[in-house]
Write a protein that binds this DNA or RNA. Structure first.
Lengths: 241, 241
DNA sequence: CAGTGGTCTAGACCACCCT
DNA sequence: GGGTGGTCTAGACCACTGC
């Protein structure tokens, strides 16, 4: 399953932290002990630990060890690129998706142009989905899947998980994204769909890319302001841009 | 200056990308060429490239090379933990800071308790600063610097850069943070300070930590919704939590 | 085929923490 | 002092790209 030794070790450590085998405030076994435990060289162990550090799961302290960080902050950062379906599974919420629209277009729909002017003339699949949590409409996801590289998009994939379809059926490697969070005024239609008191919604706009740097998806997610929460873990950067 | 060979190489590559010596869409020199260029081993080069990958500056493609990504998206992600002073320098805006309040407290002020109940009884320095950009009040930063570990906080540090003071004068190593972005209702005072039409503001709440895992700062930043923008770069995570 | 990045190793030396 | 993490090296083998 695991593609590499490093990620297998990292995943195993994450699982053990999740299941409280290593608890917040405690130290992980030392790198030498982990070498024995996993039969790996020190650099291999260190690469695995680096990924846990990036995730905000541990903090390494020189001369002492790797300490497991608290994540009982109610909300654990699940940033990175995740799909709604994946977030649901992880959070265990009663969620529902209503597909409002799915159709092929020759040009970028007008509602996207303001945010993605560079794709004005691109063909793609226009998809709108309303996300309900506990019966409440919380998010309107508007997607535009660029074609190429996406050739087809079955309705049932839209209802369950596009990412699952693209990665497992179409064998596309989803790699990275740029996101922008802002607050915007929405039209009457969106206001009604999300049952908003006023015209303000939180907008998350993102451009999503494959591993070969092909842009494949534009997303506009409109969130009810009172339900929106974005949680992030950040490390102080040593590199100045 | 550079603490390590890896970060010196990474910084040099970043600088060259910034100055268009390596342009978006082009490939960096191969890892072997970079080995010769910097007189480093391959793993050392690769660690430097990994940090550029994490920053979203390059994408590595197997069998081909490391391609410089587009960042002419107007807004380049400068997330991570950055201070207002640092963001200004990088963005080159005409900004101004007004210190509204700076005083020692024995307990957490009430306005913080809702978001940081766990620090209710902690002593610290309460600091409020209004951030003006081009003459417009855009952000109200409310900080609470926990004492311990912070023993003193001069007024001029508050006016310029707390982080500069803490890192260079107090020799504290600022390491990581958890942030939460949401939308909240503010009281009349904040509404007036930010000249808001209504009571809604974007709130960024964060807990900031030192390298030894000591929590040292709580922050509540209230943003004008029409001026708020948060830009992020994210990679698809291979590790499931 | 040669060139690229992806992975892993075994060993070295250093800096820091603790007792 | 012995144990911890921080850094760097030289070399190996693999998988993919492109000619």
């Amino acid at each position: 399953m695991a593609q590499s030794k490093v990620s297998a070790i990292a995943q195993d450590l994450v699982d053990k932290i999740k299941h409280q085998q290593y608890k917040p405030g405690e130290y992980l076994p030392s790198e030498h002990q982990l070498m024995d435990l996993y039969g790996a060289s020190r650099e291999t162990i260190r690469k695995a630990l680096t990924s846990l550090t990036d995730l905000g799961l541990i903090q390494k302290i020189r001369g002492k060890g790797s300490i497991v960080l608290n994540l009982d902050r109610y909300t654990f950062p699940i940033s990175g690129i995740s799909s709604f379906a994946e977030l649901n599974n992880q959070l265990g919420l009663k969620a529902e998706t209503k597909v409002l629209l799915l159709q092929k277009e020759d040009h970028l729909p007008t509602s996207f142009i303001k945010y993605f002017p560079e794709e004005k003339n691109s063909a793609g699949f226009h998809l709108e989905r309303l996300r309900l949590i506990e019966g409440q409409a919380d998010v309107l996801d508007c997607d535009y899947l660029l074609s190429p590289p996406i050739n087809s998009l079955p309705k049932d994939a839209a209802e369950t998980s596009i990412y699952n379809y693209l990665e497992n059926k179409e064998k596309l490697e989803i790699s990275y994204a740029t996101k922008e969070i802002s607050v915007c005024k929405v039209d009457k239609r969106i206001q009604d769909l999300l049952q908003l008191d006023n015209k303000l919604a939180v907008l998350v706009a993102s451009r999503n890319y494959l591993a070969d740097t092909t842009k494949f998806e534009l997303t506009l997610s409109y969130h009810r302001p009172d339900k929106f929460k974005f949680v992030d873990f950040a490390r102080r950067k040593k590199i100045k841009f």
